[in-house]
Write a protein that binds this DNA or RNA. Structure first.
Lengths: 140, 140
DNA sequence: AGTGTTGGTCTCAATATGAGAGCAACAATC
DNA sequence: GATTGTTGCTCTCATATTGAGACCAACACT
């Protein structure tokens, strides 16, 4: 990976969008990023990018998510327009979740970050080890 | 923006990396993403991508972050190798934070998502409005 | 009748975050 | 020389947010 930033015209301007010289507190990007950066959001987006899933399937696919957070996160992703929820009134009920076109568009951008994480998790682990060792050494 | 996914060979495989057919609970990508997707991480990365900042400068730049979370988030970003922290032993002390090359590399991937958010925050707001209206209508 | 499956919600404990005070060591001001 | 201000933190305590698990209705299967 190279360390260059693709488009230098962005940078912090990205976060300042629409409110030049103003505080970053009410920045619209933060509002959008907040949902995406939820603890389970990228994982569920990643799953749904592969194919549609039922509620219970997602639950089994992500073993350590609580049912409560699965419901809630899917609800947020649906509200922001990334996920489509379709109820089939069978008994027992069947609810299918899938990505919308908008969601696929967003995933196209998120994917870069996930891919970077996949390639570089070794580097992160190494950095953590170094940091923790330096900290312990300082305590001597 | 088009809705296509750039590289179909990834998808969920990204999250399954290193543990095929296994649960997603101990996926290394989740470990890496967790820090990046912290509430303040992308905002601080975005600021530091522009230039180096001192602690107090970041505090003023992001008015609604608590000092506690600023310290903590910068510490996590440093531990994962994205941020360099340099202390100048002046009185009063001066601490400068900057991106490492590794951090710039990560920001190169994160940037796509931030840019998407900038371009599409209108769409998200619209989706939310529609969702909330449909919900209210259902309560009639 | 009993057991299991479905997608939820509700309650309550654990955890994470925010608001604000306190702190040591000086510099500048009055 | 006493006050005031600055720095980058850390500590405490109130408030969100999240997790663990019970409970639910409506059926199918044994």
């Amino acid at each position: 990976m190279d360390g260059r930033i693709a488009n230098l015209s962005m940078k912090l301007d990205v976060y300042r969008a629409m409110s030049p010289e103003q505080s970053l507190a009410d920045c619209p990007i933060r509002d959008v990023i907040q949902t995406i950066s939820g603890r389970w959001s990228s994982l569920l987006m990643s799953a749904l990018a592969e194919r549609s899933y039922r509620f219970g399937e997602l639950r089994r696919l992500v073993p350590d998510i609580s049912q409560r957070m699965l419901t809630q996160t899917l609800g947020e992703l649906q509200r922001d327009g990334y996920v489509h929820r379709e109820v089939f009134p069978t008994k027992p009920p069947k609810v299918e979740y899938s990505l919308t076109e908008f969601g696929r568009s967003m995933y196209g951008a998120l994917e870069h970050l996930l891919h970077w994480a996949e390639v570089n998790h070794g580097g992160v682990r190494q950095a953590r080890r170094r940091f923790d060792e330096a900290k312990n050494a300082a305590l001597t």
